[in-house]
Structure formats: C-alpha cells, structure tokens
Design a protein around this nucleic acid. Structure first.
Length: 603
RNA sequence: UGUCCGGUGGUGUAAUGGUAGCACAAGAGUCUUUGGAGCUCUUUGUCAUGGUUCGAAUCCAUGCCGGACAGCCA
C-alpha cells in the first residue's frame, strides 16, 4: 500500500463520550471498560460497526479497554460459524486503530471466586496489548459465566427475590397483563424459598421438559414497566450449546445474564441500543439486589443505525441469504461487514462514516449518500488509477503505423505523488468506452462524435473520421486520425480539447470480469411496510467482461483500484492469481460521481 | 389510552442561557489530460403555544407528533 498521509480524524464528541469524560474527570472509575456484546446468531453488519467504533473509540480515547463478548445465552439460535465471523470482522474493523484496546481472555478461563471485604465475588479480567491472534486468547462468552450466574440466581431465591414458577408460557403471557393493564400475581409467587430452591436445582438437573417451569424475579406485577413484572430469569432448554456443549439444560435470559456478565468483566459503561432503555430498571434491580462488592456497571443507550436503501435486521439479512437473493452473507451488496469488505470498502471509510453520523437518541434514517461519500473520499486518496474499458468499442488510428508500440507514462494516483507512474502501451488498434461516442450527441456532450476531437488520456488527440456499422446498423468500429504532435510533451499537447477519454490498446488488453453492483433495494425504506423483498432491485448485479490495461495482471487483493472516469474496483477473492493465466474478477465498490449522468437526466 | 425516550434545513448532526454552525444532498461558478478530485459561492431549519429571563434551540408548563416496551429472543 502506498504511504498516503490520511488526515488524522479528530475524536468525535457525543452525549455518551461526554458522560464518560465527566466520569474520568471526577475519577469515578479506576479504568474505563466497555464491551461489544453480539449474539452469535448472524453476521455483523454496518450497524454493528457503529457500535464497535463507539465502544472501542471510547476505550481508545479514554485509556480504557473494550471486551469482545459473545452474548450466547440462547443455544437454539447460535452457532460457531457466527462466532468465527464475528471475531474476524471485529479484528478487521479495529486493526491498526484500537487493536491494542481489544479485551480478550486466556482461552478456557472462567471467573475465579474470590472475597472482597468478606463478600464473595466473581471477576474475569481482560488481557490486552498482546497479539490478539495468539491461540492462547479468545473472546469472552456469557456462557462461560453460567456457573456464576446460577450462583447469583440461588442468592436471589434465598433472599426471597426469585421463585420457581409453574405457569405455562401461555399463562405467563396472560398473567403479565398489557402496557396499559396491570398484571396478576402468579399462583406460585409465594412458594416457600426451600421449595423454589429444590425445584430450581431439579430444573438444572434436567428433571423437567422445556417450558415446564421458569425461574422468575419477584418484583412487581403491577409495575407500569412490563419488564419489572416478575421477569423470567431462567428457562429450560434441552439443547446442545455451541460453547458449553451439553453441560446445561437451563439457560439464563438476556436481562439476567447481561448485567451480570458486565459486572463479572468489570465493565463500567454498558452501551446498548434504544430498545433496551425500558430494561434498564431491571438491569439495575438485579445488580443492586445481589450485594455485589465492586462498583456496578451502568447502561447507556443510543439510536441504532438505519441506512437508506437497505435492511439491517439480522432476521431479514438471514432471509436474503437463505432464499438466495444474494450469494451469501458476504455478497458485496449486503450491508454486512464481510460484504462491504468484499466489495472493497475499507475499515477507514466505515470509521469516517460512523464518525460523520454521530451518536444520539434520535431514531433516524441515514441517507445512503453519506456512506457513499465516505467510501469515495477514502478510495480517492488510496486507489491506484488504471485504464479499463467496460463496454468496448473498437477504434483504429488510421495514420498510426500498424506495428508500432509506444510505452506511455501514466500517473498511478494524482492524489499521491509518491505512488509514481507506470507504462501503458499504445497501438493503432484501441478500445474506447461505447458511451464515449455518440453519433448525434446532445448539447454539452464533450466526448467523441463524427468529425469531432477528443483527447486519449496520456496519449494523442484523435478525430473521428468514419463510423463503421454492421448490417443491423450497430456501430462496430470507429476510424480516426491522431494529431501525432499532440502526445504528452509534444508541440500540440496543450491544445484545448473539451473531452478526455480512457482507452486500452486492443492487442495488449487483458480480459477480466467486472461485477457491477447497485443498491440492493429500489426504495429508501424497504422494510417500512409489508414485504421488503418486493423492493429488491432486479438490476443490483451486472456482470461484464471488460478490457484492462496489462498492468492489471499484477492486481493485488489488498489494493484498491480506480478505473479512470468510471468507478473504484477491488479484486474479488474468487479471482485466480496464477502468474501465467490469471482469472481476474473485479468488484465495483462504487462509481465515481458522474455529473454528466446527472446533466443528461435533466432532459 | 400505561411507562420510558425523543423532536434543530431535504437528510444527519453541533451549539450545555449569549452571533443557529458543520457534513451529506441540491444549485451556481472555477479549475482540470479523470465531466473524478480540489477550490469558491448559494438555497433551505430550532414541532406549537404560553411562561421565566436583559437574553431561550437550551430552563418551566401545556399541547402536538414520532419511537420503544406486552418472547420462556437478544
């Protein structure tokens, strides 16, 4: 990669960072500790990137740590496929930026019991600053705390703050009431502590089938907050767990496991999305009623990302994959991290994007143009310029010798002088873009026309003398003459010609596949109402065989390219890079801004 | 008609009682061997009504509008 100097992005400011900054100023915590806690039931998407950059950003800006934790309390939906993809994506997103704040733990380690001021405690510290790829380290798992969470459940039961309930799922629903209607006490609510203890133990031992009983917190069935109406803490699930195997048949609910996981890891700021706001009283209730000896974590909520022209829910993304509307989670049209990566979007662009949209509690839909702008800005600085013709039209320079080959100098990246130049071969037979010629052009068309002149980038000014058509009237070839003095540095090189177009020498042209992606959906809010799939864009992928300048035979997967005047491209992993017979596949990351397209649409 | 949380140009986001700013989008111009990039300029906004104050986007009250919550999902 070239050593482009990216301007240092100043640290953003938002209401959560303001809170953290105040806590740092007053010395409230020994060290700031955040966490990113995905459930491994799907692939990470750009909305997760917003959360990752918030949590790791805070760790980075305030000298803290951010743990990666698998929030894996529901074995029926989770899978190792997802935990592996999550690790890969998180690492890619924070690599070279906050990787030194990445909180992991020794593989297989679980919280150790200890005593603080006479009180029992469980704590699992993070390891940072080591090579995150070390096999000896792994992410945190909520499921690693099942023993401790079970202990805490026992404590609540003994305190008379939790009970085993025999209500069926249907009855539990009915007893809960509704937002505007008070709930009703379970008939098992005042079951003796000893009996609950016995039943809970037997639940753990597998004596009862799924759904038969639950452990519930004893709070207030009349609470205006539904989550305080004796919420279920544990349910029975005779299911193998991807991380704990068959050790458990009872699993803690999110609300019970999450606050305790935060506590066990010493999290100070537990940042989540708005829909958990109504759970906060429960989060606090659990921690406050356990007599915990260390400072308690606190929950803060922000608005999740909504992006125009796409869907963000894991359920819907899963549906697109399963029903094969896309080629997989990493299809370049997907808003997933792996999809964006495959498409050629960089982590830096995603970071700039998330910085630009900010953090608030207002539920908004971000214009897709904001993301596109961040991608273009990033790629403009780093992409290597190359000449490639997407839809070739043959051009013959009739006054140019048949066997002559010139090696012309071409700039690799005008934004980065250090990227240097390369040679591009020029011959009599060329390809230009079909769109760069019009037989009867509209006003303001600056490209080639019959009898008109245009400059070939890095080469000559040519004039179109003759349009050759086949029997159906289709244009198959242009016969042109070049101003042989007009090459770069030549006597007439500075002649004013309105248009400059790209080209490729036909005998030297390299065939490659180009995959042109467009928005996955045709409307800004595909999931606003009804079936989002009816808004799928039927033209979201177009596959072309294109003509590339020979330099591209050495294209590198890690690099980004701009096919001049067209778009940014990146090599797809499906490419075969054998030196003798490479099979190149380029994904179009994003088009260049096209003011001519806008101009021509006006009419 | 319960509880909680919100409401600033088209979109998103600042201003923490003191000149409503920035980005994207849109428009105009300039430059250009990328109709790219850059540079310059322009249009458009504090949900409403009262109140407190020398002064309110900001504080208070009322109303209006929007979102979240009734999984043994997270």
């Amino acid at each position: 990669m070239s050593n482009v100097n990216f301007k240092a992005t100043t640290a953003p400011s938002d209401f959560i960072r303001d809170i953290v900054a105040a806590h740092v100023a007053e010395g409230k915590y020994h060290q700031i500790h955040t966490r990113f806690p995905p459930e491994p039931n799907g692939y990470l998407h750009i909305g997760h990137a917003k959360s990752i950059y918030l949590n790791f950003g805070i760790a980075r800006e305030f000298g803290g740590i951010c743990n990666l934790r698998m929030d894996d309390t529901n074995p029926t939906k989770e899978d190792v496929e997802y935990v592996e993809s999550i690790e890969e994506d998180v690492e890619w997103l924070i690599s070279g930026w906050a990787i030194d704040k990445y909180g992991l733990k020794p593989r297989g380690k679980t919280p150790e019991p200890r005593t603080i001021g006479g009180k029992p405690d469980f704590y699992l510290p993070a390891v940072v600053g080591k090579n995150h790829r070390e096999a000896s380290l792994e992410p945190f798992y909520a499921s690693d705390y099942f023993d401790q969470i079970y202990e805490y459940a026992l404590t609540l039961v003994k305190k008379g703050l939790a009970y085993v309930c025999d209500l069926s799922p249907e009855d539990t629903d009915a007893y809960r009431g509704a937002p505007d209607r008070s709930g009703k006490d379970s008939p098992f609510r005042n079951r003796p502590v000893e009996e609950s203890l016995d039943l809970f133990t037997r639940m753990k031992q597998g004596e009862f089938p799924d759904g038969k009983r639950t452990l519930r917190a004893k709070i207030d069935m009349a609470s205006p907050n539904i989550w305080m109406r004796d919420p279920v803490l544990y349910r029975i699930r005779h299911t193998e767990h991807h991380h704990t195997s068959d050790k458990w048949c009872i699993y803690p609910m999110y609300d019970f496991a999450h606050c305790l996981s935060d506590y066990i890891e010493g999290i100070t700021h537990s940042i989540c999305t708005l829909e958990f706001e109504v759970h906060k009283p429960l989060y606090d209730w659990i921690l406050e009623n356990l007599g915990l000896p260390r400072p308690l974590p606190h929950q803060y909520e922000f608005a999740r990302l909504n992006l125009g022209y796409t869907v963000m829910s894991k359920r819907k993304l899963m549906q697109l994959v399963k029903e094969q509307h896309v080629s997989g989670w990493d299809d370049p049209r997907m808003p997933t991290i792996c999809g964006l990566r495959r498409r050629g979007v960089t982590a830096e662009a995603l970071r700039a994007f998330t910085y630009n949209i900010g953090i608030t509690k207002y539920n908004s839909i971000t214009d897709a143009a904001v993301l596109e702008h961040a991608i273009r800005e990033d790629l403009n600085k780093r992409a290597l310029r190359r000449l490639a013709v997407l839809r070739p039209l043959k051009v013959v320079i009739t006054n140019y010798p048949e066997d002559k080959i010139e090696e012309l100098d071409a700039v690799n990246n005008p934004e980065d002088p250090e990227s240097g130049t390369r040679k591009v071969p020029f011959t009599r037979d060329l390809y230009i873009e079909t769109d760069d010629f019009m037989e009867t052009p509209p006003p303001k068309f600056f490209r080639l026309r019959p009898g008109g002149e245009v400059r070939l980038k890095y080469a000559y000014i040519i004039k179109c003398d003759e349009v050759v058509k086949d029997s159906s009237g289709k244009i198959v070839e242009l016969r042109c003459t070049a101003d042989l003095e007009s090459r770069t540095g030549g006597p007439t090189a500075n002649r004013k010609v309105k248009g400059t177009i790209h080209w490729v020498s036909a005998p030297h042209a390299l065939d490659a596949q180009a995959r042109l992606y467009d928005r996955l959906f045709t409307v800004p809010e595909p999931d606003a109402s009804g079936d989002f799939k009816k808004f799928l864009n039927p033209n979201s992928l177009e596959v072309l065989t294109v003509k590339c300048e020979p330099e591209l035979k050495d294209a590198k997967p890690a690099l980004h390219y701009q096919f001049e005047r067209l778009a940014y491209f990146a090599l797809d992993p499906d490419s075969q890079l054998s030196a003798s017979n490479p099979k190149l596949i380029f994904n179009r990351t994003i088009t260049l801004r096209d003011t001519w397209a806008k101009e021509s649409q006006k009419r």
